[in-house]
Simulated scan of single mutants.
Amino acid sequence: MKLGVFAVLLAQKPLEEALDYIKAQGLDAVEIGTGGYPGNAHCNPEALLADESKLKAFKQAVDSRGLTISALSCHGNPLHPQKAISGDHDKVLRQTIELASKLGVPVVNTFSGCPGDHEDAKYPNWPVAPWPNDYQEILDWQWTNKVIPYWSEIGKLATESNVKIGLELHGGFSVHTPATMLRLREAAGEAIGANLDPSHMWWQGIDPVQAVQVLGRAGAIHHFHAKDTSIDPVNVHKHGVTDMQSYAQMLDRAWQFRTVGFGHDMKTWADIISALRLVGYDYVVSIEHEDGLMSVDEGFSKAVENLKQVLIREPLGEMWWV
């Protein structure tokens, strides 16, 4: 396995300065945002695709530092009912797939998106209860008319481009659990898989080790984010796991994102890394920093220190004791 970072936490730094900072931390890989919610501070796919010299310089900046690009990421909502939003996110996704193909980057990360509840809807509708039955009808309409057709098309494009799509399982979107991931994969093809982030499993009440087992046995883990979550033992009984308070309300929220090791102990993280190895995932563990209690430098550095303790780097040798 290799250790990397989602470089959007360094968006305020120029690309080469950010890469130097990442290299100095002893990392092997970088995940780079290309638009959508993460922005494109370090990589504008439209500009790079239009200018071969810019594309070459971009690649050289990464290669010259001995780093690899684990994924290009354009997390967005290409199913948003407002065409101005979905159209922009769809365009960026397609450009990112093309750019990844040119660069030899194997994975493009994004969200599945979430449609509205009818053709003239203005906002996404995320059904999470089977009753009243209206919610089941909305869910069936979304998957039949929007989710499966769109991702079947994108899955075909990705396959033709020799790129895999890593959908982050995230609340608020149609694909947010291992089950919804596998449902879409079955319908849209094996190019569609997970960018598995354990932080979003914990707050939904899902054990990430079991999520790794479920998805890994299906060969459906294309990329992995390293981010932690802490559950407040008092507030969760007041607000529940679907707490709608701002992430900034940290004292009152039911749960909050933490850097690796500050939500769960290193034995838990060792179990996650071991589960990844067990199911055959031997790619990049990409740090994502969204800890409201720590600066970027401190949160990132502590995640690096903690993960270096448990990351399994060397290839599996022969079982000489068998």
Rank of each mutant, 00 (worst) to 15 (best):
L3V: 01
V5L: 13
A7L: 12
K13C: 10
L19R: 04
L19H: 04
K23E: 05
L27I: 09
D28E: 14
Y37H: 13
E46P: 00
A50H: 01
S53W: 03
L55Q: 15
K56H: 14
A57M: 05
C74W: 01
G76E: 01
L79D: 00
D88V: 01
V92C: 10
Q95P: 00
L99Q: 10
F111E: 00
G113M: 06
P124D: 12
W126C: 08
D134G: 05
P149A: 11
P149L: 10
E153H: 05
E153P: 00
K156A: 15
T159G: 10
S161N: 15
V163R: 07
K164F: 07
I165T: 02
G166R: 01
F173W: 08
T180G: 09
R185F: 05
R185G: 06
P198C: 11
P198W: 00
V214T: 15
G216K: 04
I221M: 08
H225D: 12
K227H: 06
I231V: 15
I231C: 08
S246Q: 13
S246D: 15
A254N: 01
D271I: 11
E288K: 12
E288N: 12
E290H: 12
E290Y: 08
V296T: 14
E298I: 13
V304F: 09
M319I: 08
M319N: 15
V322T: 13
